[in-house]
Design a protein around this nucleic acid. Structure first.
Length: 767
DNA sequence: AACAACGGGCTTTTT
DNA sequence: GCCCGTTGTT
């Protein structure tokens, strides 16, 4: 077993400990993934059947990579038999198998965040509630918290504390929304992300025989990133491990950054209560970063009160100090960082993939994108809209979903009138109202108007019936036709392909290509299935699409690029050169995290995660003024900068002495009181208005005026112009005067348009 | 019913 | 600065 020699002493002990409860506290860069991988390989080599192993990872990509690695170590392909993946994907499969017991169809739909929000919006509207008070995001968060703590709608209503919190926050109807939302999901044969865990708990609680089956199947359980599990996940694991107690959890309390999603660090701290005779392994030697980075990170995390004692150390070289760069604006920050990347790459003969820019919020990416593009540096943005969340993809997938589960109401409402087939909002409202009155799904109503009469005109009814028949056709084909064939059929006959093909704007072309790409992907899937002598049904392809993330769909070709991502997305990754940007008060730490010590400490852990991504060199930047919501605000350097031990940092561009600039060391951090608020936050403290300074040239009136002046005189008959949405065109004639001046423009891709020059964003492109 | 323009809100972070 | 839903126009 030569692989054991590749481990240090504490790693090896953790790998060789096969039976009983154990916890591995793994500092950043201490070879946690290696231990997990080797431990599973070691289990298999010691005679454990891969079918008896359950390994829960944070992303599906991590699971895939780990399986490959295990196969390499043990030789063969046995690792494919391990149940490995995220909580959501592993238990979604188990739920499909057992769905009928819970009253769900086995082909239940998984509602993603968009579906959930859209349904909540509908309900809030139907209840006649004000969506400014009942903000869908907010309501979703509250329902999600409830579910992650296994509080059902009934338990919610019975919970005096929760109900009074809702009353205090002026949202007394929340319990009704939750109840209605849950019942609508159920009727639609749909589970949201939180349901996947909640319903797994229900399954294991109410069906002892099922519990028994999985307890005996999963004799060995491993959980990665244990610090980021929530109560619902904790309980699933606890139940499954109850007989054999061969449970190994791996995590780092210092890297817990998902409490906003219900994650509970307490799960790490409570492990010893559930398993008093557990064994603890600490991995404290860092193999990733320079000594400077390790020590600097330690000096940051020391400011947190809540943590398990450990000292991460390294044998690695001392390395460069952390460079702190001050910039004037966000745009300058982009330019400076891009230039640094360019010159460092040249000087040190590196590749673009050796660099990463990490930020607190995705919205910060813009200035870096622009600057990198100007220098022709290839980059890739992670996070943001994933492939499967794009409108056109969601549209065609809605058809797929509907084909497999016609009661899927979010899918139905999404595409019943897309592409346009003359089924308007008014008609849909009548149908949906009728469905609620008859207490059936909308699909039931529209597929049998005789049984469920609705007061809409015959023409519309016919259009709806045509649509229903189309979906029914697809459903019939579904049983007998492989996925790619059906997908192509749907793409064509739904009219989506035509609709996108007709749109010749650059975005339209991109959308068309995206659909092509999806279809190609499905074709690949079908081919794979065929090799296994099976028909791959569309439902098989669709099964976990909602659970895929960007990281799972990464393509090989764009690998050698600079990476831009949020710090959350960077978790588990490492780069030789890391730039942590936007280190400003109210941004990082976020303005939303300043109400309690617990929240601030989570921000600090986030900063710790960011710094520890760096192998060789880490650079930090902040700006003194930044555009936020189109407004220029002044910003102060983050308190986190001054928390780094001074001996590990150097300052670039620092304002020295009393020239009006504020020295970092002189910066006083506001005291943070532990908030007395309940589990769900109150209103965040008001934004510091003192930071708002008026903007010189952008009152909206000024903009339209200047636009009217400049364009009014510059656009004339015969001009070649370009429009944001319509692309290039030619001015046919100009009519009217001053404010009312209009131009008739012919766009090859969109035909003739009459545009009011005061508003239309036209650029003259005569050459 | 469909389209163009406007206004409002928003930003943490993601399975 | 951007996206979305609403409004107003045909």
């Amino acid at each position: 077993m030569g692989y054991l020699e590749k481990l240090n002493e504490s790693q090896r002990l953790a790998v060789e400990n096969i039976n009983g409860p154990m916890m591995v506290i793994a500092g950043a860069g201490s070879g946690k993934t290696r231990v997990l991988t080797y431990r599973i390989a070691h289990l298999i080599n010691s005679g454990v059947d891969p079918f008896n192993i359950l390994a829960l990872t944070f992303t599906n990509k991590a699971a895939k990579e780990m399986k490959d690695r295990i196969n390499q170590i043990v030789g063969g392909t046995e690792a494919m038999n391990i149940s490995m993946g995220t909580f959501h994907s592993v238990f979604a499969r188990i739920l499909r198998y057992n769905a009928e017991k819970l009253g769900y169809p086995s082909n239940f739909t998984i509602y993603d965040t968009q579906d959930t929000k859209s349904l909540l919006k509908t309900i809030i509207k139907e209840f006649g509630l004000d969506d400014k008070v009942y903000k869908p995001n907010n309501v979703y968060g509250r329902i999600s918290s409830a579910k992650n703590n296994l509080i059902s709608p009934a338990a919610y209503e019975d919970n005096v504390n929760i109900m009074s919190e809702d009353a205090i926050s002026q949202k007394p109807e929340l319990y009704r929304i939750y109840k209605e939302y849950q019942s609508r999901c159920f009727k639609a044969g749909a589970m949201d992300f939180d349901d996947l865990l909640f319903q797994t708990n229900v399954l294991l609680r109410d069906f002892p025989d099922v519990l028994h089956v999985y307890q005996n199947k999963f004799k060995y359980i491993l959980v990665d990133e244990y610090q980021d599990t929530n109560y619902s996940q904790y309980l699933i694991v606890k139940k499954l491990a109850a007989i054999f107690e061969n449970i190994c959890v791996v995590g780092d309390d210092a890297q817990s950054i998902y409490s906003f999603r219900g994650a509970n660090v307490e799960n790490i701290l409570n492990f010893k209560k559930d398993y008093p005779d557990y064994k603890l392994f600490k991995l404290e030697q860092n193999y990733r970063s320079t000594n400077t980075i390790v020590k600097a990170a330690n000096s940051i995390i020391k400011h947190n009160k809540d943590q398990i004692q450990k000292e991460v150390w390294t044998h690695n070289v001392e390395g460069d100090k952390i460079n702190v760069i001050r910039c004037l604006t966000d745009n300058e920050e982009g330019r400076i960082i891009a230039n640094k990347i360019f010159s460092t790459k040249q000087q040190e003969g590196l590749e673009f993939k050796d660099f990463a820019i990490l930020y607190r919020t995705n919205a910060q990416s813009r200035s870096f994108e622009e600057a990198l593009r100007k220098l022709s540096i290839p980059y890739k943005i992670y996070g943001g809209l994933s492939f499967y969340q794009r409108k056109e993809i969601k549209d065609i997938i809605a058809y797929f979903r509907l084909t497999i589960n016609p009661k899927d109401e979010e899918a139905l409402m999404r595409v019943i009138n897309y592409p346009k087939r003359g089924i308007g909002a008014t008609s849909l409202e009548s149908v949906s109202l009728a469905a609620r009155q008859y207490d059936v799904a909308i699909w039931d109503v529209i597929s049998d108007f005789d049984r469920f009469p609705v007061n809409i005109n015959t023409g519309t009814k016919n259009k709806i019936t045509q649509f229903v028949n189309k979906i029914k056709d697809y459903s019939l084909m579904h049983e007998v036709v492989p996925a790619d064939e059906l997908a192509n059929k749907i793409a064509q006959s739904s009219g989506i392909m035509k609709d996108l093909y007709d749109d010749k704007s650059p975005e339209g072309v991109a959308r068309y290509e995206n659909i092509q790409e999806l279809l190609a992907g499905i074709k690949g899937f079908s081919a794979q299935q065929e090799e296994k002598q099976e028909i791959g049904h569309l439902s098989d392809f669709l099964i976990d699409v909602a659970l895929l993330t960007d990281a799972d769909t990464e393509k090989e070709e764009d690998v050698n690029t600079v990476s831009l991502m949020s710090i959350h997305a960077a978790k588990g990754l490492e780069f030789p050169h890391v730039y942590v940007v936007g280190l400003e008060e109210n941004l990082f730490p976020s303005q939303f995290s300043l109400t309690s010590r617990a929240e601030l400490e989570e921000e600090r852990r986030l900063f710790y995660v960011a710094i520890t991504r760096a192998e060789k060199n880490c650079t930090i930047s902040y700006v003194t003024s930044r555009y936020r919501w189109g407004q220029l605000i002044t910003a102060e350097p983050s308190r986190f900068i001054s928390e780094i031990d001074k001996e590990f940092i150097t300052h670039e561009n620092e304002i020295r002495g009393g020239s009006g600039g504020r020295s970092l060391s002189g910066y006083q951090r506001p005291s943070i009181e532990k908030s007395a608020s309940s589990s769900f936050g109150k209103n965040p403290s008001p934004a510091p208005t003192r930071n708002l300074i008026p903007l010189k040239k952008t009152s909206s009136g000024a903009v339209s005026l200047s636009r009217a002046e400049s364009k009014g005189s510059s656009v004339k008959e015969g001009d070649n112009v370009e429009h944001d949405r319509f692309g290039k065109g030619k001015v046919l004639k100009v009519v009217g005067q001053g404010q009312d001046q209009k131009a008739e423009v012919f766009f090859p891709t969109h035909g003739r348009k009459m545009l009011i020059l005061r508003f239309a964003k036209l650029t003259v492109t005569n050459e």
